[in-house]
Structure formats: structure tokens, C-alpha cells
Design a protein around this nucleic acid. Structure first.
Length: 759
RNA sequence: GCCCGAGUGGCGGAAUUGGUAUACGCGUUCGACUUAAAAUCGAAUGGUGAAAACCAUAUGGGUUCAAGUCCCAUCUCGGGCACCA
């Protein structure tokens, strides 16, 4: 070979890795281990994009780095395959989602292999594989058994385009997270997971996580714990009392009216013949308002119910109003209004001419009971969709739910011809009439009964709430995860992603705590360290999108001749991993030149017979090692570039080339492997020795009044002798002219090798 | 509105504990090689200035021998939350 030909080198090593499976995790309990994973991708038809490459390469650099340091590494891979794109495609074309998914997975796998990721391919998982979702259903049943999966009729977000309900976490600014259409409220009976049961622990343990502050703050805000009190207000007419929630029970003397939400359950009991019509019209209008309207128009509206409550502190008779600035789902759906203290109540009082009185404070628990509430709601998990994990439930003739026995799992997704949901709000599963019927033992009547299956499927986030544990024993057909394997490999040491701050990352913590309580997991937090990487934008700084035509295809970059090593190294060099970055094709060329220089040094340059670079070499080892530990991948690459520039100038001995190849391997594994082969070296991560980090001479920076005036080089042995250094510095020609008026003071900092003369 | 971040050359960015501001890369300019170009190699590159020097890390103050880094105020951008009582 006469020049650097990345495509040849990469093909060669990818074939070798395919044959020898060097990234297969070892079954070696007791040895030090590292488990890493990226947030597994949804395999779209478009294949890998540059964002995947950044995400996967971060994990790959850490995986290879730890493997080279002798740790037993598990770096698995999987596919999050249930979801709307495949189903919508099926509705449009009639192609089974199973079929499309398989094609897309095959393509993703092929592309991932072309990037040289150190993946243990024997552990691939796929959430729509019956062998996988069988255990998702098992997880559901465990939650169901403990009452943490339950049905409730309530107002829910409904996307009229995707024809399904959505979790709160899937509504973004009042719009569907998938299609962007405005969501509506619809009263429906739905399945929920009781995540609120773990609200306190989910909140309190956030502070102990090695996660980015940004994510921790978002989760804290999402859970939104408020400590306050519930206070009962008697209703004058004798109607049931109204319980309000307040964080300021001490301001009760200033409460001059009550407000209940339009959806308030006991609203009817508060109405009088005079007010009924007006209030019900207001309620109907409020329910019809979309979330967007409610957010945009914050002008207070409301109507008087006709009833009065008694303020337990002042004994005053105060009016009860209904207004949509009070939310039904938070607290008790009713508040005491203290217009003198609260801006919203004040605005409402001004508008409707209600009394505003100054309040004296009292003890917080004088009139009510202390109570904590949360902003977070239970997780709505049923979806009226075909392409999801079927909920393992059937209904008897009375409509009561019964779990499908565990030995009848998986509940397979039936084949249908038409994937369109029907017009009753049920998924296409309802069209599989044979599948719908199932015989189950009904304890209530003491016999087997033909029941009707649930036609809702699980939110895709349920499938991804346990996959990290499946990686420990992906082929176990006796359990969702093996106790032994999970004990050794997990929790996950490094988890890398760029999305799902309050959805997936909260749900998986919730399941972890639940399964720890059930004795299935020996830890309560699933992820030790979270790396939240930034996006890669188009060269113009805007988001890449097909419609804008500014998408960079990573496979094009490789096939253009740059190769996977350049692509990987470029994406690590592009900037701090946690910040967004704009693609710059010319900078890709710069990284290619760097790798080309590495190749030239190793394959087309005579080896030097003098070791000029022992200090640089050890400093580079230290810098790259520490930078990877700190996730400063960009400066680690820069340090390697500096090293190569130095070797170009003064010549490299074999040791230099070996060190270079070893340090380069996490970033550019194909080229590094080729170099190590030529050099007959293993890839063991090199160690630096402190004795080589310092040289015999030291450069001293001399400042006068804080300004740089001169640099002198002295014998390093003099550094400890302050008087001597000062004397040498004062004798320096450039310094003499500043010091004529006399010296007030000198400050010498040996560690910084800096001397400041104040005159 | 509230809570976080961030602001450094022509550009992406570096400066890890308050200690040489601008590492590394891109771009640009010049040179070598070449019939020529590409590739490659070498040199220069914050601004003003002939030079000495002076001025530069969003803006204005402050602390310090010394500030991109710490403190106060202001501006701009990004993110999160947003009628959560």
C-alpha cells in the first residue's frame, strides 16, 4: 500500500471482527466490568444519520478505552421498533410492520458494522420480537398484581390525527409529539402505571445521580413536589364540604373566595336554579378550549356558582366561583383565593370585583392537615394502536379485567389485512375477531369463561423501560433477566443519549425502583452516569430535515472516500460532546489529513533512531487518558494532532508510533489496528510515568505589574530556590528598564512558573 | 413572568485549581515540489502600528500582585418550566 486508503483498511478489519467477534462480553463474574449503552434507536427507513453516529461513537470510544485498559466490557445494541412510522406506512401501503421493521433493522445493522462499532452482536434485542415483548407483558403483569397498573376513566389527551391517547410527557406545548397536531381532551377509560407512588423517591434520589444538571432540573420540575395543606371549607347550603389544597395555609385569614375547576366533581351540588345554566355553559366552553387556547389566553374567566362557603378562620361567608385557571388534575381541583397574597387570585378579584383583604399569618397547620402534592400525574400507557405490545388483559362478560396467565405469554400481535383503527376508537387489533376471543379461568364464577382481549397496546416507552436489563441475558427464555447476570453487569455504568429527559429517563427509574421492591433487581437506580449529547445540525446551523434538503448522510461521507475512521474522529472533534454543533464538510477534510499523517508516519516514514519526544509522549498519554475520563473527546483528539505534528518535526521512534496507535484506537479503530499490526503490538492502553513529564529546563514567565515582559529559561533544579529565580529574572535585559525606580514587591509562583514584579 | 446555562479571532472551538488568552482544526496568504493542477510538505495568520508599544475574552464597575475564570449591575442568545394555588 502506498497511500492511506481507508475503505480498504476498514473493509479488512470489519471482516476480521466479523469472524473473530472480539467485542463479545466475557462471562467472567468477579472481574472488573464496564457496561455501556446508547439509547437504542428507532430503526427508520432512512438509516443511520450523523446524530446516531455521534451518539454511538461516544459509547464506542468509552467502550474501547475501557477494553484497552483490561476491563470486561459489555456494549450491546438493540432496536426500539414499535411505533407510529411503521404503522402509518402499513396503513398507507398494506405492508406488514413486521416486514418493514425487519428490513430497517437489517439496514441499521449493516450500517453500524460499517462504522466499526465494538458491539457485542450476540446480544442484539428488538422490542417487537415476541421473545422480547413476552417479557414486557410479564413486567406489566407484575405491576398489575401490585395495583400499579390500573384502569381509570378521566379526561385524557387525545390526538385526532394519530387516533390515540397520549401521556402527559408526549404532549409538547399542547401538540402531539409525533405529528404536531393540537391535542384534545377526551373522557375515556384508560390504563395507567402508578408512577406517582414513587414520586418522593424519584425526586429525592436525583441529587445523587452523576447526571447532567440540566436533566436533573427537568426531572425535578416535572415531578414538581409542593408541600402545603388541605383545608376543608363547609358549604353554607349544606352541600358536601370543599377541600382545597394550598401551599400557604398560613394565609387563610386573607381567603375571600373559593374557586373550583370546571371539571370539579361536586360542581353540580353547588349550583342553584339561577346559576345552573350559566355555569354549565361555562364548563362546556372550558372543556372545548384546546390546550393551546388555554395557554395563549391567560385573561381570567369564571362564573359564580351561587353557593357560599364558610372560611374556618374568619367565619366569614365567602362566594364559590368556578374558573378554568384552577386545574382539575392538580391538588384537589379547588383553591382558596387569597387575592392579597397571590397574583392570580388578585387579578381574578379585580376583574370580578371580589374583596381583597390584607392577611395576618397564622400557624400552617391550624386549620387543615399538612399535605404534599405533585405536578406529575400517573403514566397513561394504553394506546389505540396496532403496532405495539398487546396489553395482556381480557374482559369477562361483565367487563371486568382479568390478567392473561403468565404461562400463556406472549400475547402475540395478530395478523390483520387492514391496519386502520376502527371508528369506535379501538386499534386494528379489534379486527382480528378470532384472536379477540380467549378462554380464561374466572375465579368469580369458578370456571373457564370465553373472554374478550384488550385491544389497546402499550406505550412504546413501556418496552424501553426494562431493555437495559434484558441486555444482561438477552436470550434467557425463563426470565426477563437473569439474577446472576444482572448482578454482575448492572447498573449501567455509562448511558448516552440526546433525548427523553423526562419520559424514558424517568420511567426507567420508576420501573427500577418497583422491580427492586419486588426483589428482581439488586439496585434502585438503573443508570450510574448519563451522557446527554448535543445534536449535529446542518452546515447552516439549522436542524437537518428531509424537507429542507440539508441532511448529511454518514454513509455518503464514508463512501466519498473519507472512511468511517474520519467520520468517527470528526464527530468527536467537532466540539464538546454535550453541545450542539454544526456540520462543516471542510473540517472533515482536516481530520482526514490528520489520519493521513498518522498513516504516513507509520507506513511511509523512516523510523527515527533518537528519542526526541519522551516528554511529549508521556504528556500526550496523560492528556488523552484524562480527557477521555472527563468526556473531553474534542481536546483528546486535539492532543493527538499536536503529538503527530511534533513527530513530523522531530521524527518518531517505534515507541511513539505504538503509543499513537493505541491512543488513536478508540477514535479510529481500523487505522489504529492496521498500525498496531504493522508494529507487532497489542493494544493495551499505555501508562504515563511522572518522571518523564518534566524536562530539565523550565520556562519562567516574568510579568511587571501583571503584564508579560519577558520569558527566560532556567535549569529546572533552580525552581525551588525563589531568591535565585528572582535574581536571574531581575538581571534579564528586558526587565532591567522597568525596575529602575525600585521594586515594591515580587511574587513568584513556582507551580505556575510565573514571576510578577510590582514597581 | 420564574429557574438554569452561555457570550473568547474571519469560523468551530482551547485555556482542568485565579497564573503565558486565542491550543487544535477550518479558512486565508506566501513558499517548496510539479509542464500544470490536485495531493503533500514548510512558513505566516487577534487588532492598530514602520517599530517600540498599545488595545482586545458581550457592556460598565469592583476584588486581587495577577481575572476569560471570582463579585455586583446591564445587554444578548440558548434551554427548561409556565394560571401547579
Amino acid at each position: 500500500m502506498e497511500r492511506y486508503e481507508p475503505l480498504k483498511i476498514e473493509q479488512k478489519w470489519q471482516q476480521i471482527w466479523e469472524k473473530t467477534s472480539p467485542f463479545k462480553a466475557k462471562e467472567a463474574p468477579g472481574t472488573p466490568k464496564v457496561m455501556l449503552a446508547e439509547m437504542f434507536p428507532y430503526p427508520s427507513g432512512a438509516g443511520l444519520h450523523v446524530g446516531h453516529v455521534r451518539n454511538f461513537t461516544i459509547v464506542d470510544v468509552l467502550a474501547r478505552f475501557h477494553a484497552q485498559q483490561g476491563l470486561n466490557v459489555l456494549r450491546p445494541f438493540g432496536y426500539d421498533t414499535f411505533g407510529l412510522p411503521a404503522e402509518n406506512y402499513a396503513i398507507k401501503t398494506g405492508t406488514a410492520p413486521q416486514k418493514v421493521t425487519k428490513i430497517n433493522i437489517d439496514n441499521f445493522r449493516k450500517q453500524a458494522k460499517r462504522l466499526g462499532f465494538a458491539i457485542d452482536w450476540s446480544r442484539e434485542i428488538n422490542t417487537s420480537d415476541p421473545e422480547y415483548y413476552r417479557w414486557t407483558q410479564w413486567c406489566f403483569l407484575q405491576l398489575y398484581k401490585k395495583g400499579l397498573a390500573y384502569q381509570k376513566e378521566s379526561y385524557q389527551w387525545w390526538c385526532p390525527v394519530d387516533q390515540t391517547v397520549l401521556a402527559n410527557e408526549q404532549v409538547e406545548n399542547g401538540k402531539c409529539w409525533r405529528c404536531g397536531h393540537e391535542v384534545e381532551k377526551k373522557k375515556m377509560k384508560q390504563w395507567f402505571f402508578k408512577i406517582t407512588e414513587y414520586a418522593d423517591e424519584l425526586l429525592d434520589e436525583i441529587d445523587h445521580l452523576e447526571w447532567p444538571d440540566k436533566i436533573k432540573t427537568m426531572q425535578k420540575n416535572w415531578i414538581g413536589r409542593s408541600v402545603g395543606a388541605e383545608i376543608d371549607f363547609a358549604v353554607e347550603s349544606g352541600a358536601p364540604h370543599i377541600t382545597v389544597f394550598t401551599t400557604r395555609p398560613d394565609t387563610i385569614y386573607g381567603a375571600t373566595f373559593l374557586v373550583v375547576a370546571p371539571e370539579y366533581g361536586q360542581l353540580e351540588s353547588l349550583l342553584t336554579d339561577d346559576t345552573r345554566e350559566k355555569v354549565l355553559a361555562y364548563k362546556a366552553a372550558a372543556l372545548k378550549k384546546s390546550e393551546i387556547e388555554r395557554q395563549e389566553n391567560k385573561e381570567k374567566t369564571g362564573v359564580f356558582t351561587g353557593s357560599y362557603a364558610i372560611n374556618p378562620a374568619t367565619k366569614a361567608k365567602i362566594p364559590i366561583w368556578v374558573a378554568d385557571y384552577v386545574l382539575a388534575g392538580y391538588g384537589t381541583g379547588a383553591i382558596m383565593a387569597v387575592p392579597a397574597m397571590d397574583d392570580r387570585d388578585h387579578e381574578f378579584a379585580e376583574k370580578f370585583d371580589l374583596p381583597i383583604v390584607e392577611t395576618e399569618l397564622c400557624d400552617r397547620d391550624k386549620f387543615g392537615t399538612l399535605k404534599t402534592t405533585y405536578r406529575m400525574r400517573d403514566w397513561l400507557i394504553s394506546r389505540q394502536r396496532y403496532w405495539g405490545c398487546p396489553i395482556p388483559i381480557a374482559y369477562d362478560s361483565e367487563g371486568n379485567p382479568h390478567p392473561i396467565p403468565e404461562d400463556q405469554l406472549p400475547v402475540l400481535i395478530p395478523e390483520v389485512d387492514d391496519y386502520q383503527p376502527d371508528n369506535t376508537g379501538r386499534s386494528a387489533l379489534a379486527k382480528a375477531t378470532d384472536w379477540l376471543k380467549v378462554n380464561i379461568y374466572n375465579e368469580a364464577i369458578g370456571q373457564v369463561e370465553e373472554m374478550t382481549r384488550e385491544t389497546d397496546t402499550l406505550d412504546g416507552y413501556a418496552c424501553s423501560s426494562w431493555y437495559l436489563w434484558r441486555y444482561a441475558s438477552p436470550h434467557d427464555n425463563t426470565a426477563a433477566w437473569s439474577q446472576e447476570a444482572i448482578k454482575y453487569w448492572e447498573p449501567v455504568d455509562y448511558y448516552c443519549g440526546a433525548d427523553h429527559a423526562v419520559a424514558h429517563l424517568l420511567y426507567i427509574r420508576f420501573w427500577c425502583k418497583f422491580f427492586a421492591d419486588e426483589g428482581y433487581l439488586p439496585f434502585r437506580e438503573p443508570i450510574k452516569r448519563l451522557l446527554y449529547n448535543g445534536y449535529i445540525n446542518a452546515p447552516d446551523g439549522k436542524k437537518m430535515s428531509k424537507s429542507k434538503g440539508n441532511v448529511i448522510d454518514p454513509l455518503d461521507v464514508i463512501n466519498d472516500g473519507y472512511g468511517a475512521d474520519t467520520l468517527r474522529t470528526y464527530e468527536m472533534f467537532i466540539g464538546p460532546y454535550d453541545q450542539d454543533a454544526a456540520w462543516d464538510t471542510r473540517s472533515v477534510g482536516g481530520v482526514y489529513r490528520f489520519l493521513n499523517r498518522c498513516w504516513t508516519l507509520c507506513f511511509a516514514t523512516p523510523v527515527s533512531d533518537t528519542d526526541h519526544t519522551v516528554t511529549t509522549r508521556h504528556r500526550t498519554i496523560k492528556k488523552v487518558t484524562e480527557d477521555i475520563h472527563r468526556y473531553n473527546f474534542n481536546t483528546a483528539v486535539a492532543a493527538l494532532m499536536e503529538y503527530v505534528n511534533e513527530l513530523y518535526k522531530v521524527g518518531a521512534i517505534t515507541e511513539d508510533l505504538i503509543v499513537l496507535a493505541k491512543l488513536l484506537k478508540p477514535f479510529a479503530p481500523h487505522l489504529a489496528s492496521e498500525m498496531l499490526e504493522k508494529l507487532s503490538s497489542d493494544d493495551e492502553w499505555p501508562k504515563w510515568e511522572d518522571q518523564y513529564l518534566t524536562s530539565d529546563t523550565a520556562e519562567i514567565i516574568i510579568q511587571v505589574n501583571g503584564k508579560l515582559r519577558s520569558k527566560i529559561t532556567i535549569d529546572a533544579s533552580n525552581l525551588a530556590d525563589e531568591e535565585k529565580v528572582v535574581a536571574i529574572a531581575l538581571a534579564d535585559d528586558k526587565i532591567k528598564k522597568y525596575t529602575e525606580p525600585g521594586i515594591k514587591k515580587t511574587i513568584f509562583v513556582p507551580k505556575a512558573k510565573i514571576l510578577n514584579i510590582v514597581v
